[in-house]
Nucleic acid binder design. Structure first.
Length: 592
RNA sequence: GGCCCUGUAGUUCAAUGGAUAGAACGGAAGUUUCCUAAACUUUAAAUAUAGGUUCGAUUCCUAUCGGGGCUACCA
């Protein structure tokens, strides 16, 4: 990469000029800001060298620039502004780059894989309610991060750990049993996950009613909860489930099957998938052996009531429960077990958990416990902690029905895409299948981009009353740019045989250098596990292309070499957009 | 109370410790005999506050103030 070549020459120049070696980090190369593009393409900051050079910033930059000119054949010229050395790279270099990559459809994506695999857990839904906007963020992030790692040369295993058991599952089962009158997805026409979710809400309503009645009779909330018949029955059902009671298991299987069918439909629409699905009903007993091992090693301790804990006070945390006094597992016990399971199954180099930031503490503990137990792979656990999606009124709550449903949201986005497309009337030649595919592509593109362009760790607000934009810094804008480019390439109707060399207009150079950086952007996004890096980059590319498109003619350019250059630039721009968007899980249309 | 995350234009987002803090939406004003106007151009508008480290701080440190989360024998 040219940045590294430049750094190397700068380091050599420093040692020649000042007879001193300096840390490469002192000579970071950056893209020259637009205000000084007339001087160069890349810049070096020389302030850190002043102590060595014993010269003024300007003088230091000037001698360094001169020295680089002499040794670096790719360098064309340099300019100095205060302590900044701006280097112009020869357009020949960029010509070569373009010629070599213009027909590479995989530009920016590594296909050869190396190293141990990365396990990415994401989605991890509960089977008592449908997916909502919070899950959407999780799913999109998990999928995109997997794509990023894959594109940067890692083998990725996407796993989903489905929470299919527990008291909350019993609640919807109980409500259905008591009030459902045999309702099924078929009989009601409701999607299975929605149907089950409705009963979960119904349980909560009935329970609250009962609670209110009991409290009116003078019981405290705690007493009322303990007395509640609804709650008692739910707990009984959980005990029956754990005792493998046949009738309970049958109901559980039936309702979970409804939910899975619903989830599958949502996942499919959302475009996410998994290589391996774990079910908590099969993993919740794991981890007890690990706890036993910890007790033997003296890392964990047992309290008088029989419960098992770990003392993390010296790590700045509290004591944490790992096994209840009755010997049953908690979430942490199971997670210790499933982590071990994954380590055994895949021998991964990295274990990534895409889980909301409300569980930061949980993952700190998980990692610490495994480290203390001497698991060498504990260090490779990484909690990709993302921020909550909030409504203007605050947090979404399933039980209170204040959630933005994933399916409804997708429906709305697609409906908006349809309305907008019909209004613009550009796809009259599409048949209905093609048109539907486009609405879906654009609607989902808007939704996915909206979510992924935000830094994962930040909370984000979603206002259901203001629809997600289709103009500006949005998915459809980038998709539109792609369609525009494809339109030109179709009209050109030829295989692009760019060989160069051609001198570059500033707009051409800006665009080309931006495209050149795509592989680095992918690398950075994968390293940071941040799709937003790619999203924001693609927006810049689309904007840059549109300016180029607006300012310069392509098909009607009379100079053949220049025309081919611009077609090649268009081609590579389309490739970068398509490949980049695929990393976000977004498709791009040929026409829109 | 303790711990963690977070405060950037009216709003939603950017900016490995580097130049004059970028965009988008919304506001104001323009560009279609021209390859797709879901576009392009111009314009007003922001680093919560106070210190510190540094040649240089939106970025790092400390305090204050605001927002969120965790701190369950829940998951």
């Amino acid at each position: 990469m040219i940045e590294q070549i430049l750094t190397k020459h700068a380091l050599d120049a420093v040692s020649r000029l000042f007879n001193t070696q300096v840390e490469p980090s002192l000579l970071a190369v950056q893209r020259t800001i637009p205000a000084f593009r007339n001087q160069g393409d890349f810049s070096l900051v020389v302030f850190p060298l002043l102590k060595i050079s014993r010269k003024s910033p300007e003088e230091t930059a000037a001698v360094l620039g001169q020295a680089i000119m002499e040794s670096m054949e790719e360098a064309e010229s340099f300019g100095v502004v205060k302590g900044y050395l701006n280097i112009r790279i020869k357009s020949l270099y960029w010509n070569h780059f373009l010629a070599s990559q213009v027909r590479n459809g995989n530009f920016g994506l590594k296909h050869e894989k190396e190293g141990r695999p990365v396990v990415v857990e994401y989605s991890s839904p509960n089977t008592n309610k449908p997916l909502h906007l919070g899950h959407v963020r999780n799913n999109l992030l998990g999928y995109s991060v997997s794509q990023l790692l894959n594109a940067s040369g890692r083998n990725v295993i996407k796993v989903n750990l489905v929470n299919d058991r527990g008291i909350h599952i019993c609640k919807s089962m109980l409500a259905w049993k008591l009030f459902g009158q045999g309702e099924t997805p078929e009989s009601s026409g409701k999607k299975g996950d929605k149907l089950v979710g409705d009963y979960y809400v119904l349980f909560d309503r009935k329970f609250k009613e009962e609670l209110a009645g009991l409290m009116a009779r003078g019981l405290s909330e705690e007493q009322a909860t303990a007395e509640s018949v609804m709650m008692k029955q739910a707990r009984e059902m959980l005990l029956k489930w754990e005792a493998r009671d046949e009738e309970t298991l049958e109901l559980w299987n039936k309702m979970n099957a409804w939910v899975y069918k619903g989830f599958d439909a949502t996942y499919k629409r959302l475009g996410v998938d998994f290589d391996r699905i774990y079910y908590e009903s099969q993993t919740y007993l794991l981890g007890k052996k690990i706890v036993e091992e910890g007790l033997q090693k003296g890392i964990l301790f047992r309290k008088d009531d029989g419960s098992v804990w770990i003392d993390l006070t010296e790590n700045g945390l509290d004591e944490k429960l790992l096994l209840r006094s009755d010997g049953t597992s908690v979430y942490m016990t199971q997670d210790l077990g499933t982590a071990q399971l994954r380590a055994d199954d895949f021998n991964p180099g990295q274990l990534i958990y895409v889980v909301g930031n409300e569980q930061n503490y949980h993952f700190d503990v998980l990692k610490l416990v495994l480290q203390k137990l001497g698991r060498p792979w504990a260090d490779s656990i990484y909690h990709l902690s993302y921020g909550m999606v909030e409504l203007p009124e605050g947090k979404m709550k399933s039980r209170e029905g204040t959630v933005v449903d994933a399916d409804d949201l997708m429906d709305e986005m697609i409906a908006t895409a349809r309305a907008m497309t019909e209004e613009l009337g550009k796809i009259e030649d599409f048949n209905s299948t093609e048109a539907e595919a486009l609405y879906s592509m654009v609607g989902l593109g808007a939704l996915k981009y909206f979510i992924l362009k935000v830094d994962p760790k930040k909370n984000m607000t979603f206002n259901p009353r203001e629809s997600i934009d289709f103009n500006g810094n949005t998915g459809p804008f980038i998709q539109y740019t792609h369609a525009r480019i494809r339109s030109i390439l179709r009209k050109a109707g030829e295989e692009i045989q760019f060989t160069g060399p051609v001198s570059l207009h500033p707009k051409e150079a800006d665009l080309l250098i931006m495209l050149y950086q795509f592989p680095q952007v992918v690398g950075q996004a994968a390293g940071d596990l941040s799709p937003s890096v790619v999203a924001n980059y693609l927006f810049e590319v689309a904007r840059e292309y549109n300016q180029f498109y607006h300012e310069l003619t392509i098909l009607k350019e009379e100079d053949l070499n220049t025309r081919t250059l611009r077609l090649a630039l268009s081609q590579l721009s389309a490739t970068v957009i398509r490949n980049g968007m695929s990393l976000l899980g977004i498709d791009v249309p040929e026409k829109m």
